[in-house]
Design a protein around this nucleic acid. Structure first.
Length: 576
RNA sequence: GCCCCUGUAGCUCAGUCGGAUAGAGCAACGGAUUUCUAAUCCGUGGGUCGCAGGUUCAAGUCCUGCCAGGGGCGCCA
């Protein structure tokens, strides 16, 4: 799904392809000409580099090939100029009228012309997935924010997306927690249970288990009781989940993140045994050192343990069982997991096991680099975790300070709401504007940047456009600029139109590669061009014809910025 | 030891299927506001794209080796 996404570019590519065939017939060996945005405006608007690649097959100098192509067909109306440059670049300059028609067409289409690639296709998206009984910290932000952006992009492209929050709600830690819950908490603390209390209980219980074997045994006994369905332990465990879920929901609400499903690991408990049985039936799971493992030598990987020597199951089993369940229930084309880089081997292993089981569903692990502090990795035990809520609070506080300083008659509530949009937007953008696979060293300064290449920069550009649109309506009430032609006389106007035209392709590229930063980069570039335009080209004060044309351009910029920020999960307030 | 990722300006990072003189932001310096939101814009300085080979018309991008950093490698997830 890529080359033909941008219908506008496709028209150009089609013409160039026809010119190749006119000049060289099928000898050119081009399935389709590739046309891309020019690397420098001095070269025109678009360029095609295929002549240089074809030169070898044609046994002719690249420059001569390009010149023959350029001369092969008469210039169509959409092109103003076609010329050869350098070793054989074919540079295309489009006519402003054609360009205006193209962007106007996009502006009238849903999602500014995003193609409906996902029709009839289902994607299960597994992201965020925090652990029960632990507070969300800044390490969770990447999976949550990147996963959510992928979610939004795929939905906009027409996919049926099933976003599932695969909570860590099962496992050995619950023995420690239940035992500690009974021992360390007062009645009052148990009554008003919080995630903080649970976290404290866990650390305390863990430490004691290290010193006191008897304590560890007691914890294991509680775990077994839970697994066997003991009503009392079951009730406590459910309470842990309810308390945690309340906390998670609070954070997700602030982040504007939502899920279709909240199916934790425990959801699949009932099919773990049959999953291992299935693996054994197929001859895939074999005994090794008391455990059941699937050998993956042929795939060049270590064995994958699917049942521990104590009879318990581990995460690989749960993940395989989860695939079985999801395939049976949703028949997805793909299942996408968003987790940190440390789990790469695990995913490769259990993907391989699923392939051995005959699953053809495309399983994709989208991994991102760890977030660390300048002084090193953070961990609960070192006590240097930064809670996600603290980060959000700080972001909103800093945004509010700036908003209050430029106090222009907004009510207190409006200011607070705006601070939330700007603060959270800054945090999200700081993450989404980087390639997910880079390691991020967290600093408050970077995460909360409000100027330059930042979320607020884009929001500010958007708010300024909106302000212009409102003032236009007030200036000439009832007038519809759509009735006026889009002129694109100034270079910066043409640059804006060209950039607007790239929106669908940017979204598709970002979605395909699971890299929201591709979209973020695009939006930043558009905002830069717009800010430059805004600075040098008066809109409301221009002659009516120019004014109406420019306001149409502004309306399209507002549309794309709102749409694009929306796809990143960043709010775009009309006023800042 | 083996596997994965990263190395681009002082700092943080972009760089599409190999294309033209490698781009942004921050920081520094110099400008722009009686004019549509200065969270802005315009300009200046700043580079051995980790190192060494190779592939080719063309390499930051592909291949090999090396160096440095991060992560992973059987019963945690």
């Amino acid at each position: 799904m890529c080359d033909t996404v941008n219908r506008c570019e496709a028209q150009l590519a089609e013409w160039v392809g026809a010119a190749f065939r006119a000049a060289f017939g099928e000898a050119a060996g081009l399935e389709a000409a590739r046309v891309q945005a020019a690397t420098d405006p001095r070269f025109g608007d678009f360029q095609c580099n295929d002549a240089m690649a074809a030169a070898k097959r044609l046994r002719q100098p690249p420059r001569a090939v390009a010149e023959a192509v350029v001369r092969a067909l008469p210039l169509p109306p959409m092109l103003e100029k076609v010329e050869v440059a350098g070793p054989g670049f074919i540079n295309l300059t489009v006519s402003p009228a054609w360009l205006a028609g193209q962007v106007a067409g996009l502006a009238g289409a849903p999602h500014f012309g995003l193609p409906d690639l996902g029709r009839g296709r289902t994607v299960v998206l597994d992201y965020s997935s925090p652990n029960v009984a632990k507070p969300m910290h800044i390490g969770h932000i990447r999976s949550t924010v990147i996963g959510n952006a992928i979610d939004r992009m795929y939905r906009a492209l027409g996919f049926r997306v099933i976003a599932d929050n695969h909570l860590g709600d099962w496992g050995t830690q619950f023995g420690l927690l239940i035992q500690g819950y009974r021992a360390f908490l007062s009645d009052a603390e148990r009554e008003a249970l919080t995630v903080e209390a649970l976290e404290r209980v866990y650390v305390q219980s863990y430490n004691r288990s290290k010193e006191e074997p008897g304590w560890l045994d007691a914890c294991k006994a509680e775990l077994v009781k839970l697994q066997q369905g003991d009503p009392e332990n079951r009730a406590i465990w459910e309470r842990f989940i309810a308390i945690s879920r309340g906390e998670f929901e609070r954070v997700y609400t602030r982040l504007g993140v939502g899920f279709d499903l909240w199916r934790g690991e425990s959801f699949y408990n009932d099919i773990l045994a049959e999953t291992v049985a299935l693996l054994e039936e197929r001859g895939l799971a074999v005994e090794s050192e008391g455990a059941r493992v699937v050998r993956l030598e042929d795939e060049g990987m270590p064995v994958c343990i699917v049942r521990k020597s104590d009879g318990g199951y581990n995460y690989a089993t749960t993940d395989i069982a989860t695939v079985r369940s999801r395939v049976a229930e949703f028949a997805p084309e793909r299942v996408v997991y968003v987790t940190d880089e440390r789990q790469q081997l695990h995913f490769r292993q259990f993907f391989a096991v699923c392939a051995k089981l005959g699953y053809t569903t495309h399983l994709e692990h989208v991994w991102f680099g760890l977030m660390r502090l300048p002084e090193g990795t953070f961990s609960t035990r070192q006590g240097n975790v930064i809670k996600l809520e603290a980060l959000l609070d700080e972001a909103e506080r800093r945004a509010l300070e700036i908003i209050q300083a430029s106090n222009d008659g907004m009510s207190e509530d409006e200011q607070r709401e705006l601070a939330a949009a700007v603060g959270i937007g800054a945090i999200k953008y700081a993450d989404l504007s980087h390639d997910p696979q880079t390691l991020i060293v967290f600093t408050w300064e970077k995460a909360l940047a409000l100027e330059g290449n930042s979320g607020p920069y884009l929001q500010y550009a958007h708010a300024r456009v909106c302000s212009l649109l409102d003032k236009y309506t007030a200036l000439v009430p009832g007038r519809d600029p759509q009735a006026s032609p889009l002129l694109l006389a100034e270079p910066v106007e043409k640059a804006l139109a060209l950039q607007l035209m790239q929106f669908p392709a940017a979204v598709v590229r970002a979605a395909e590669a699971y890299k929201p930063n591709v979209l973020a980069d695009y939006l930043f570039g558009l905002s830069q061009t717009y800010s430059s335009f805004y600075q040098r080209s008066p809109v409301l004060k221009a002659e009516p014809e120019v004014r109406d044309s420019r306001i149409r351009l502004c309306a399209m910029v507002a549309q794309v910025l709102a749409e694009g920020l929306g796809l990143l999960g960043i709010r775009a307030p009309r006023r800042i």
